[in-house]
Design a binder for these strands. Sequence first.
DNA 1: TTGTATGCGTTATCAG
DNA 2: CTGATAACGCATACAA
Lengths: 342, 342
Amino acid sequence: MTLAINQNPKPMSNIRDVARLADVSVATVSRALSNPEKVSPGSLAKVHAAIAELSYKPNMLARNFRSARAYAVLVMVPDIANPFYSLFIRALEDRAQQKGYAVLLGDTRGTPERELEYIRRVETRLADGIIQLRPSSEKSQNIIPPDVPCVNACGCEFTSGPAIRIDNRKAAKMMVDYLISLGHKRIGVISGLRDNPHAIDRLAGYKDALEEAGIPFDKDLIAEGDFTMWSGLNAAFQFCNMDVKPTAIFSMNDEMAIGAMQTLKSNGFRIPEDISVTGFDDISYAKYSDPSLTTISQPAEEMGKLAMDMLLKMIEGEPLSQRECVLPTEFIIRKSTAPVKK
Amino acid sequence: MTLAINQNPKPMSNIRDVARLADVSVATVSRALSNPEKVSPGSLAKVHAAIAELSYKPNMLARNFRSARAYAVLVMVPDIANPFYSLFIRALEDRAQQKGYAVLLGDTRGTPERELEYIRRVETRLADGIIQLRPSSEKSQNIIPPDVPCVNACGCEFTSGPAIRIDNRKAAKMMVDYLISLGHKRIGVISGLRDNPHAIDRLAGYKDALEEAGIPFDKDLIAEGDFTMWSGLNAAFQFCNMDVKPTAIFSMNDEMAIGAMQTLKSNGFRIPEDISVTGFDDISYAKYSDPSLTTISQPAEEMGKLAMDMLLKMIEGEPLSQRECVLPTEFIIRKSTAPVKK
DNA sequence: TTGTATGCGTTATCAG
DNA sequence: CTGATAACGCATACAA
């Protein structure tokens, strides 16, 4: 009698073993798993018994190969550590899981090179389609070959191809309208990078509001950031050093607003008494910043869900009822804004 | 002449097409791709020419099936939207990509049911192994079958199986030592859920420090949270309402500390003049909170990298030089701590 | 309803 | 160094 070190090292049973034990054909086993309704109750029972007996686990690698589908979706994101994207990803993953698809994570670090590496994954059949989280305009979008199914989950006005988005321009206008209604006339902007599609849309909204109120546009009031807290912190210095300082700052996202508030406070500004600050996105920290941040909330959950549904339809060849879906935003007033000082 | 709507709808060429065009055998093409050094320069050139001509993309589904490997790793995380985990995931994904593996995202929402669904993915060969981000003790760990390769990337003292971790107990002690050195004797704790392994380790460190300083442990100074900002906000009320209030609060993560600071400030406490607050993890917001947060920084990048390397070694059958790796933490002093008031 | 037989695209073995 | 060919595990068209 020898010592059994590995007790049943690996049964590794396959569909043939199950068929043999259940005394049916492999075809019946296959059907029992994918189309149970096309199999007699008797056979079904025998198959299930055999599966349990052998603790058979179907080899999905084989199934995927055979059906020429990865049952996986690539989610391409500029930076997973950005809380704004995390929310999307959680919603996307949840929906994919429900529908039997896996989510492959592709953090591009914002570089086209890495995007290409990931796109290659769908060209080599490791993924069936792409959810693009980078906001893209006409120029940048066509990195992705036309034959790969792709949905942009946080698009812009100029995004080509299927997309779920909010109306960035309108939302930005609403925010600036609000600041104007509080009596602010000199409103600074902390923008994203000049060619970022979100930044472009939101700046347009800012200009719309100014124009409607008859306030002339002053390019000196635009500070450029890159959507990070650090860049917001730096951008705010530009306003601290101005001769005629703005009485309000419209930041194009919450993180830059939070960074900016640090600079402003340490330079002696009281928020909102001396200067109002607004954000965009409503990340979870917006509620806990000091003061809490007036901002625009995007329905990230809903957007992720819709984007995934749209992509899966494309993958499965169903017709799209609409190629673009624009969702409403929510305007959230907190403590970082107040009427202009007399 | 007919109108070509689809220009080359899909060549979809396979290895056989390449072989035919290059006038070599499929075996040679296969070798040219995976072991180029075993192929003559002449054949290599012909093969590459044919690949370019046909714009051939190898079918990885077939390769994976044939080699019985998914070349994918499942990352199981309680909540992707938690910034602490995001950092890990970014590092993990980066490393996996470098080594030719994909990352499958598995957000478990903290439930065992969903963990099981994801574990099934590796049992059905869709993933080759698991990176577990949930801190786990003996009891909880063995949900994962012993034959699936798994590494815990942020483990604890009681984590069984391969793990990368920090010394939570020592780090917590160091933080409390520091508070004691500032003269604090009555130090409140905002804990994670009582049975959370991180909470257990860090509470042990707190007690170690107290004992060493001869300060008696008072269980009324422990408030239970769940690592969210909201729970920190609530937990802090417990301290505001005490007769003899603590002069410092040791929060077991940054998010709860940020929540707690909001409660404290709105109840008239000045931080750090009236009360010191400390965090744990050093998420990016810790630097931008008001006041900026004294905390412990974990080397998340390094931990993710090491965890992935360890897992891939296990998957590829290489021997592990060590089953557990404990990394050093960094102690970061910012503005939320000060000597106790006289 | 069930079984038989074929092929999916690749890698690996083995003989030349 | 190269080529012919046999798997890999499953799904499906077709026949029964």
